[in-house]
């Protein structure tokens, strides 16, 4: 297959970026999107040119490291996957593919397609945990949790922290990310004692770090590779407003 790639190049956080065009020929449809970038980078090395920096790691859709804005959508045109799970057979032969980094004030570009997502760590440090010290836990069956509740908690907890929700939101809000952790823990009896403090602290940190507000557009749930829904944002709002404590 043949593609024209239009890739965002940026030398560093404070440099001005630009698009660069590459002709990509001889690409098999069974090549993953990131493997296609590998091939491009290898060609660049052979020509003595600097390679395109991008984040990636597990290449099976679970680590959350990769995240490219492809043809105007985070993780590309398919639903429910990360960039590394996107295959070239999904694109039309001869088409132009635009590749950009996540764009958000809270995720500054490090280089080319690589962004800094430390803000997510900081939000979780503000309260995205249950304060159980190692060695202090009671026997696991002391508290029974109905299957439905455990499954719903798992639905929320499927977040891999990739940042697609922020990248697609017109407000650059991190509400779906915050909601996934708050909702997952608030559903479980173990997470309830700290629930109110957790919701407030995480939302305050999100605001402080420059993420926008949520206006219920719902694009985050459209782009979430793990199909997390905005029902969890509703639960976050309830925890934030009504949970006593």
């Amino acid at each position: 297959m043949f593609f024209i790639l239009k890739v965002w190049r940026q030398a560093g956080p404070r440099s001005r970026g630009h698009f660069q065009l590459f002709d990509m020929d001889g690409i098999s449809g069974d090549t993953s999107f990131l493997e296609m970038l590998d091939i491009l980078n290898n060609r660049l090395v052979s020509q003595g040119k600097e390679t395109i920096a991008f984040d990636h790691d597990c290449r099976e859709g679970i680590c959350g490291a990769c995240g490219l804005y492809i043809n105007g959508r985070p993780h590309g045109p398919d639903d429910g996957i990360t960039t590394c799970q996107l295959y070239m057979r999904r694109f039309r032969d001869g088409s132009v593919i635009t590749v950009e980094p996540w764009r958000s004030a809270a995720f500054p570009v490090i280089k080319d397609l690589m962004v800094e997502r430390k803000a997510f760590d900081k939000i979780l440090q503000a309260g995205g945990f249950i304060s159980a010290n190692t060695g202090s836990a009671p026997e696991a069956h002391t508290t029974l949790i109905a299957r439905k509740v455990a499954e719903e908690s798992m639905d929320a907890s499927a977040c891999i922290g990739c940042g697609a929700c922020v990248a697609t939101c017109k407000n650059r809000s991190a509400m779906l990310f915050v909601a996934s952790r708050v909702s997952s823990l608030a559903l479980l009896p173990q997470g309830k004692p700290e629930a109110a403090r957790r919701a407030r602290a995480m939302v305050a940190k999100m605001d402080e770090l420059g993420f926008g507000s949520c206006t219920n557009i719902g694009s985050c749930q459209m782009e979430c590779p793990k199909n997390i829904t905005i029902t969890h944002i509703a639960r976050l709002n309830r925890e934030f407003l009504y949970r006593p404590g």
């Binding site: 159980a132 202090s136 836990a137 026997e139 455990a150 908690s153 798992m154 997952s184 479980l188 173990q190």
Partner: peptide, 10 residues
Amino acid sequence: IDHCVALGVP
């Protein structure tokens, strides 16, 4: 297992 349940593993 006990500890992971306490930490909220679903």
